[in-house]
Each structure stands twice: as C-alpha cells, then as structure tokens.
Design a binder for these strands. Structure first.
Lengths: 332, 332
DNA sequence: CTGAAAGCGCTAACAA
DNA sequence: TTGTTAGCGCTTTCAG
C-alpha cells in the first residue's frame, strides 16, 4: 500500500504539499498539482481513512440500531437512511439488537471509541439514562422512540394520533371488544408506548377498557401472530375479542393466516388492524386495513438532522410530513 | 476522552504496561493489573479503535453490498450475515448499490483504505476484472453471483438446478408458453444468469424456446411486476404466455395483483412461479408456488468463509445445505 | 515484569 | 507557494 510519503517522494515534494492537494487547499502551483496527480495514479494511491480519522477526529460513518432488519418497517427505514447518508458522503454501520441491550451497548461503545461518529437509534433497549451518558461522545438521535423528558435528539411520527385514529375507526365500525398487541413488554412502556396511549385514549373516550388477557406483549413476527390467534381461540367464545389492534402487519398476517386456515372469517370472526402498510398487505387473502407510516420521510429527516449536528449546523425537522395515515381495506 | 496515556499516568505506570493489559499479555503483576483496572474505571476509558487499527492494520468490520435492502431476500441475507459476524466479533457496514456501480466502487475503495477489512458482495455491478483488482487489499467474496472462471472467493446456492426444477415443473403441469423475468439486463448475463441457464435447459429438453417479447429484464419490485402484467396483456390474446417464471416473489406479487384486479384468474389465465418464498407469499390471495433459497445458511457460510480468510484459517463451505427447494402452492 | 522510544499515515501550525 | 516538524492514540521491539 502506497502512503502519502511514497507519493511525496515520487513527486519530488513534501508530504504537506501532498496533504494540501488531498484536502483541496489553495496555493498549490499547477505543475506540482499535476506531478502529485501523476504520482498518485502511478502508485495507485488512496489515502488511509483510518489515519485521517485518527488525526482529524472526524469520521463519516453513522451507526444504525434496529431490532430486526427483516422487519420491512426497519428495512425501508434503513433504506431511506442509507440513501440519504450516502448522498451526503456518509456510510452506515448497521447492528441488530434482537431486543437485547448488549448490541446497543456495543454500538454506544463504538461511538465512544470514535469508530462511528453518530448513532441513529431506530429501536432502543437500554435505559434512557444509559444512553444519555454517551451523548457527550457524539450525536445520538432516537427515531420513533419518544422520551419527552429527555434532551436527546428525537424525531418521531405522531404514533399516538395514528393509533388513536385507527382505534377510533374500529370503535366506529361497531367493535367494542378490542384486543391489543405490542412489540414491547407492557402496555404503556417500552416499545410502542405512544401507540398504547392513543389506543387507550380512543377506548376511554368511548368508556371502553382493555381486558388483561386481551393484551399480547412482545409480538413481532408472523409466528407470534399465529400464536396470538391460538391464544384468543383458546378463550371462551363469548369472552373473545371481536377486533384486534396489532403491532405490525407481520403480526396481523400471522393472525389472519391462522384464522383462515381454521376456516374462520375475517373481519366477521375477528377484525384485524395492521400497522405499517407493508407492500404485500394489499394483496393478502383478506387485504389488511392498516396504518401507514411515512418511513421514507422519517429516514430522511432523522439523517438530515444528525448530519447537521455532526457538521455543526442546525436543522429543523418538518413534522408536517410525518403524519400517519389510515389505509382502509377489508380486514377491519 | 481519556487516552492510554492518562490511564498510565493515573496508575503510575508506563503506556506499554497499560497496552499489555489491554491485549491480555502475560507477565503483569497482579497489583499493577488492579491499578490499571481502577484507573480505567475512574477515567471511564475505552481504547480508540481507530488508533489501534492504524497501528495494527487489522480491523473488524465487514462491508456488505446489496442492491436493495428492502428486498426481503437481501434483508434476510443481511440478517444472517450480521448475526454470524457479530457472534464472532465483527461489525457490518452496509451499502446499497441500486444497480449502480458507483457505490460498489466506493465500497472497494474502502477496502483499499482499510476502513473495511473484507467485502461480501451479495450483488455485483462492475466487471469481474475491476473487482479482482481489489482482492489484494482484502478478502472479497461473491455471494450468489457466480463467475466460474474467476478466482475470487464465491459461495452460491445451486440456482441453475433450482430454476431448472421449477421450469420443469411448469412444463410438467402442461404449460409450454413460458415467459421469463430477470433482475438483470439480458437472458444469459448479469443478474441471475445461472437461473437463466436452468430455465433454458429445461425448455430445450422439451424442445421449447422463449419468445423475445416474453423476456422481461430489470424487474425487481411489485411495481415492475404490475408493468410486466400490463405488457403481457397488451399482447394478442393468442400470443400471450400461459405461464411466467419470475425473478422474485415481489415481481410475482405485482403480476398477480394486476391480474386479479382486472378480474383475471391465476393460474388459469397465467400461471406464476415466484422466487424466494418470502414470508407473506403463503397467504396471498393466490398462494404462490415459488422457490425457496437457503438464505440463512448462505449468510452463515459466506460469513464463516470470509472470517476464516481474515484470520488466516481455512474453511470448507458445505454445499449440502445450499440447495433450493420448490414450494408448491396454488399460483402454478 | 516494566519502561523508553520508534512509528503506523495523516494533518496543521509554523517557518521560510 | 512549499517544507519541517510535532503529534493523534496505540503497539511493539529492545533494554533493563
């Protein structure tokens, strides 16, 4: 591997001149410029980004935390982030948490070690205090994980309003026995707590409440959805919910699949509200009524914000474009 | 940020002793060990991975190239790679090419600059010669992109056999007018050329051939699938294909959706063969007959191979677990 | 068992 | 307009 020294020697110049060339400094004569260019070509030289990073303390890679990249919500989000980042000269290092805080901590340590310059947390496992402890090492932004009392950077869609609207829609359709799936542990904590609040607000407005065994925590996958369906169907027929608000289209798909395979009908036996409007939901055996998140815009906004911070600029997130939308189809 | 120097000073020792501690060298007395540990804790010290990397020339991040992370084939592959890599202490830096060689080149440059230590190419845009030029800078492995004549590392599923089997199945079902979608430009080049070979082998065995306007290149998304459907339906009714071999379940889904929305029937009006067996295909309005790739195993094998190379070991890929499987459902 | 010192490849004063 | 030089934070001989 050729180094800057080799280039300097070959061009008959000092390393600083070469360095100036590399950094587009002014005051280099054209002939030297050509000589450097030529030497670089001949040596097939590329500057070592590691050395530059050690010296300047500036990097250009952004860490992204997601719980599972296979979840389309996250893959579309990562797509948006990666493209926005790349267009501004940044790279993305991705880590999946699988709901475990170990990976999250690992990523935070990488920030401390300056291996990544900033972190976008699209999911979050550890305590907010732990994370706040790391913000002195670089910008950290929470993406769709709200902590109003924290002073960490945050960008979120209005999930409370979205799930309120969806729940209200279910109620308006005449459903009153509504179950609830969440990605997190509890109804009003961890994953999706804002969703839970919107859900509960709609319910209490109509003097409805949720039964404990109609709450299904930690549901993520199609398999989880199937399991939820089984649990519901184990309950006495007159004690079953008539509608369910799911944490994702995947879960909704699992429930739907299980119901259909048993010869049951959707929405007659159970109305299902999805979440995310994933590409395939439109063409399922029963097209899903679901909630669309502005994932692309969210990714752009969060990336623009963090890059602005990184470069010492300011950036105002435009929340106008961050609203959820109810997509009415057949499942509810 | 505390440095090794600060730790050394606080512990009343030299940097070399601290460095030895960091690298688990033998010959450090217990009391010094404790002093170092204490100093590190008090200073909240983490070694700079950038400095270490500059010094040792060893990194632990692997670059991954995919064309689109939102394609479930790639997101599941990345999932498998990321988890395997993490379990062995490596990180992954992901870049999407969107079928453009610029990003690919950018990643190759990062290898040259030692920012990533190795590259897994899950899709490939540039010429094989260009890529071979970079292998002197670190291990590069092609994942499901075969170039028998190249000496680059390669791990692939047997796509030729898979698409042969699928096409044979279509023929055995009585279809003889079979169209073909590909992710690449041409029938026998670029993306999916092995697939094309299997397709053609099955066809020619039955003395069948493909019509030029039954070949649909560069198809990736659901939208692309819809467009394919429209193009077919613009052809004279008696000149239309009766079956189609698609490049992905997404494309298949698009075609299916377009047909159904026009009141046409699948497989009666068009039999559709998917590719990938994505999670939702089972529960579509017409469940897809499709081909399953051992994506998880593929990710593991490719990652194990590249890490072995990185660490100077050898690794034998087990091709027994890399076979495709035909999943028979309703669409064909 | 421990320390001094050189150097990884680069940048940025400071001089000239 | 160009060169000299002192580090960035770490590892690694080489001496002791």
């Amino acid at each position: 591997m050729a180094t800057i020294k080799d280039v300097a020697k070959k061009a008959g110049l000092s390393v600083s001149t070469v360095s100036r060339y590399l950094n587009n400094h002014p005051y280099i004569s054209d002939d030297k410029r050509d000589a450097i260019k030529k030497a670089m070509d001949e040596l097939n030289y590329s500057p070592s980004s590691v050395a530059t990073q050690l010296r300047t303390k500036k990097g250009n890679t952004i860490g992204i935390l997601v719980s599972r990249i296979t979840n389309p919500y996250f893959s579309y989000l990562v797509d948006s982030i990666e493209r926005t980042a790349k267009s501004k000269g940044y790279n993305v290092l991705i880590m999946q948490t699988y709901d475990d805080k170990t990976s999250e901590l690992h990523m935070l340590e990488m920030l401390k070690q300056q291996f990544v310059s900033a972190i976008i947390m699209c999911s979050m496992e550890g305590s907010i205090e732990t994370i706040e402890n790391y913000k002195k090492f670089g910008p950290i932004v929470l993406c769709n994980e709200e902590f109003p009392e924290s002073d960490l950077l945050q960008v979120s869609t209005d999930q409370e309003a979205g799930s309120y609207e969806a729940t209200k829609y279910l109620i308006d359709q005449g459903y009153s026995k509504i179950a609830y799936c969440t990605g997190g542990d509890l109804t009003t904590n961890g994953h999706g707590s804002n969703r839970a609040q919107g859900f509960e607000r709609a319910l209490s407005e109509s003097n409805l409440s949720v039964k404990k065994n109609w709450i299904f925590p930690k549901t993520h996958s199609i398999a989880d959805g199937r399991e939820v369906a089984c649990k519901i169907l184990k309950q006495d027929e007159n004690k079953r919910p008539t509608a369910i608000f799911t944490s994702s289209d995947e879960v909704a798909t699992g429930i739907l699949s299980e119901y259909l395979s048993r010869g049951l009908k959707v929405p007659e036996d159970l109305a299902i509200m999805g979440f995310d409007n994933q590409p395939s939901t439109e063409i399922l055996a029963v097209p899903l009524t679901t909630i669309q998140q502005p994932v692309k815009t969210l990714g752009q906004e969060v990336t623009n914000l963090i890059i602005a911070k990184l470069e010492g600029q300011t950036y105002e997130v435009d929340y106008k474009n961050l609203k959820l939308e109810l997509i009415k189809r057949k499942s509810a």
